[in-house]
């Protein structure tokens, strides 16, 4: 057998079109069955939740939604994120890795970097010589030089990359993102008296806000809502 036949047979076997289709169909059928059950569960669940809601609303709530020691009223609304409604953008940028030295300088300039509440198991460099982040440059108008420093990005992750946080911030404007999501209506949250736009779905969260003249865009995967909100809270001190 020549290599072409061997590799074609190998790819056909391990990335088998029909097999993958069967797997997808099974998941679709499972989803359809679950949808059917939900039709019966939803009315009953609504009645229960309404009863609980009426009971709770009879007692006024004091203090922070998040932490007992926080005296301000936080209001958390996580807008749903339909990841299929993604619009993609490509920016003409250059990324320069943040070195040990520049990281120390940035910690001096941006005090929040030293007090971030990062969930346990996650760090900037879980493996040696890991890229901790980058400084993002754009072109100066009318030139081909990527000399305009626009934003910084830090990448936090755990050892197997199942959990990750990307923290982007800029003094010049909203940080770039290479994908945007379209939502019909969004509601703002309030954390420590600051307005924050929060999105989330399936252990994937995004926060966008401005604080002390800096624009922030943070997204996180694989961490829970409490951990994500604690991270945001640690910046807004």
């Amino acid at each position: 057998m020549n290599p072409k036949e061997l590799f074609q047979k190998t790819f056909d076997k391990y990335l088998n079109k029909e097999e993958i289709y069967q797997e997808i169909q099974k998941k679709i059928e499972k989803k359809e069955k679950r949808k059917g059950k939900l039709i019966y569960l939803i009315p009953a669940t609504c009645v229960i939740l309404l009863t609980i809601g009426l009971f709770i609303s009879a007692k006024p709530l004091h203090g922070s939604f998040l932490f007992e020691e926080n005296q301000q009223e936080d209001s958390i609304i996580i807008n749903s994120l339909d990841q299929s409604m993604i619009s993609l953008r490509d920016y003409d940028i250059k990324c320069v890795e943040i070195t040990d030295e520049s990281h120390e300088q940035l910690k001096q300039k941006y005090s929040f970097l030293s007090r971030l509440a990062i969930p346990s198991g996650i760090s900037l460099t879980p493996h040696p010589s890991e890229n901790r982040g980058c400084a993002v440059y754009t072109k100066e108008p009318g030139t081909n030089d990527y000399s305009k420093l626009y934003q910084y990005e830090y990448y936090y992750k755990n050892a197997d990359y199942s959990k990750s946080i990307v923290l982007a911030f800029s003094k010049l404007g909203k940080p770039f993102r290479d994908y945007y999501f379209m939502e019909d209506a969004t509601q703002l949250s309030t954390i420590n008296g600051n307005s924050v736009l929060l999105y989330g779905s399936d252990s994937f969260y995004i926060a966008q806000f401005t604080y002390q003249g800096t624009f922030f865009d943070i997204d996180a995967k694989g961490i829970n809502e409490q951990e994500f909100l604690k991270l945001i809270d640690s910046i807004l001190q």
Partner: peptide
């Protein structure tokens, strides 16, 4: 998006 979601770098 799914590839990014898997590896989660911008």
């Amino acid at each position: 998006n799914k590839v990014k979601d898997y590896y989660h770098f911008r």
